[in-house]
Computed example of a mutant assay.
Amino acid sequence: MDHASPMTRWLKGLALTLVVIFFMFPILWIVLMSFQTNETILRMPPSVVFTPTLENYQALITGKLVSSAGVLEIQFMRNLMNSVILSVCSVALSLLLGVPAAYAFARHKFRGSEDIAFTLLSFRFAPPLLVLLPLALYFQDLGLANTYIGLIWVYQLICLPLILWIVRGYFEDISPDVEHAYRLAGHSWFSTFRRIALPLAGPGIAAAGLLAFIFAWNNFVFALVLASADKQPVTVGALAFVTASGIQYGQIAAGIVLSIAPTLALALYAQRYLVEGLSLGAVKG
C-alpha cells in the first residue's frame, strides 16, 4: 500500500518529467532540425516556431544535395543499406560462433578456459588505432580491402566478445540439472544444447544480439579506413554533408533521424529481452 502523500507523489512525478525532458530534448531538437533549412537552423535566437520542410529528407532519398556551390551527389541511402548489410551479417556470424562458444565456456571448465575467455574479451577493448594499420596492410595483401567480407570479418571481432560474455553468464544462470536429466533420457549433447539450453537462454541471446548490433551499427574508424565510398556505412557517409561551401545541418539532422531509426525500432521491439537478458545473464562471468 502506498502511504506517500500527494505532495511526495507530485514531486516524484515532476522530477521524473524533468529527467525525461533533459535526456530526450537533444533527440527532439535533432528531429525538429531535420525539418528546417540551414537558414532557419542558424538564425539567432533559435526558435521552435518554423515552417517545416521535407527538403532534407528528399535530398537524402534522391541522393542530390543542393548547396550554394551547386548540386552535390551523395550516396546516403547506399550507405544506409551498407550499414544494414554489415551489421546484420556480422551479428549473425557472431551469434553463430559465439553462442556455442559461450555454452562451452559455461558448461565445460578446462585448463586455461578463463584465460582464453579473457583474451577474447580483450579484443573488444583494444583501441581501434592499435590494429588499424596492420589490418589495412593485411587486407591489401589478402585482397579484402574495400570488400563486404573484409568489413564483416572486422565487425564480428567487435561483436563476438560481447556476445560471448553476455550469453556465457546467462548459460551459467541456467541449472545444469535440467540438461543432465535430458541427457539421461538418451539425447545427444547437440540435441540438449538445441532444445534445452538455447530456449532457456533466449532472452540473453536476444539482448546480446541487440547490443552487438548497436555497436556494429555505430562503428566508424574501421569502415573509414578499410572501405571506399561504395562500401562505407552511414556513420562514414555522413561526412559528405560537410562540404566546402559549409555544413548542411538540416541534412545531417535528417541523416541522424534515418540512421537511428533501425536501432531504435529494434530496441523498442526487444526491450523486454534486453532488460531481462542484462539483469540476469550479464551479472555473472
Results as ranks from 00 to 15, higher is better:
Gly186Ile: 01
Ile214Cys: 04
Gly186His: 06
Arg195Glu: 10
Ala212His: 01
Ala185Ile: 00
Ala207Tyr: 00
Leu184Ala: 14
Ile205Tyr: 03
Pro176Met: 11
Ala212Trp: 00
Gly186Trp: 05
Ile196Thr: 05
Gly209Phe: 00
Leu184Val: 13
Phe215Ala: 05
Phe213Trp: 11
Ala181Pro: 03
Arg195Lys: 12
Ala201Thr: 02
His180Lys: 14
Val178Gly: 12
Ile166Val: 15
Ala197Gln: 07
Arg183Asp: 06
Tyr182Trp: 11
Leu211Phe: 08
Leu211Tyr: 01
Phe215Val: 04
Phe190Ala: 11
Phe215Cys: 04
Ala216Pro: 05
Gly186Asn: 07
Thr192Gly: 15
Asp173Trp: 05
Ala185Tyr: 07
Ser175Lys: 14
Ser191Glu: 13
Gly202Trp: 08
Ala206Cys: 12
Pro176Val: 13
Leu184Trp: 06
Ala185Glu: 15
Phe215Asp: 05
Thr192Asp: 12
Leu210Ala: 03
Gly204Thr: 04
Gly202Glu: 02
Ala206Met: 13
His180Ala: 10
Pro199Asn: 08
Ala201Val: 04
Gly204His: 01
Asp173Gln: 15
Asp173Asn: 14
His180Asn: 14
Arg168Lys: 15
Arg168Ser: 10
Ser191Met: 10
Ala201Arg: 02
Gly169His: 05
Ile196Val: 15
Gly169Cys: 11
Arg183Lys: 12
Glu172Ser: 13
Glu179His: 10
Arg183His: 11
Tyr170Pro: 04
Gly204Pro: 02
Trp189Asp: 13
Phe213Ser: 10
Gly204Met: 05
Leu210Ser: 01
Gly209Ala: 07
Phe171Cys: 05
Phe215Gly: 00
Ala208Trp: 00
Trp165Ser: 13
Glu179Gly: 10
Leu211Gly: 01
Tyr182Cys: 09
Ala208Pro: 02
Phe190Asn: 07
Ser188Trp: 07
Ile166Leu: 15
Val167Met: 11
Leu200Val: 04
Ile214Asn: 04
Val178Asp: 06
Leu210Gly: 01
Ile174Arg: 07
Tyr170Cys: 07
Arg183Thr: 05
Trp165Phe: 15
Ile214Leu: 10
Trp165Asn: 13
Thr192Arg: 11
Ala212Cys: 08
Phe213Ala: 14
His187Met: 03
Val167Leu: 12
Pro199Asp: 07
Phe190Cys: 08
Val167Gln: 09
Val178Arg: 11
Glu179Gln: 12
Val167Glu: 09
Ile174Gln: 08
Ala181Ile: 07
Gly186Glu: 07
Gly204Asp: 03
Gly202Leu: 12
Arg183Gly: 05
His187Cys: 06
Pro203Leu: 05
Ala185Cys: 11
Arg168Cys: 11
Val178Ser: 11
Pro176Gly: 10
Arg168Ala: 08
Arg195Leu: 12
